[in-house]
Amino acid sequence: MYAESLQLLWPFLVFVLMLLVIGIYCLFATLNLIRALIGVEILIKAVTLLLIVVGYITDHVALTQALVITLIVIEAVVMAVSVGVVLGIHTHKNSLDIRNIRNMKG
């Protein structure tokens, strides 16, 4: 029974990986602050899917659901704060271009 459920892992993992690649590509390629946040959102979606899949495969659905609920609440708060920061940048620069925030070089 265990071996059977483990065989489900790989196909799901491939899709999680694809979502992760989309999110990371978006983070690197975008020129817009809001779209960068959307990239982060897609990454979080990928992780949520992974957690649920792991719970399904190992038969720990209750635990992973509890974790995912917490994760979703935290995600909402982080997004609210980052939207506030983006709005602040917009009031200063009147634009959402990511190149505005590259005047400090690490």
Binding site: L33, V78, V85, G88, I89, N103, M104
Partner: peptide, 8 residues
């Protein structure tokens, strides 16, 4: 704000 956004 810029520093905060990068940190976020």
């Amino acid at each position: 704000l810029e520093g905060a956004f990068k940190y976020i």
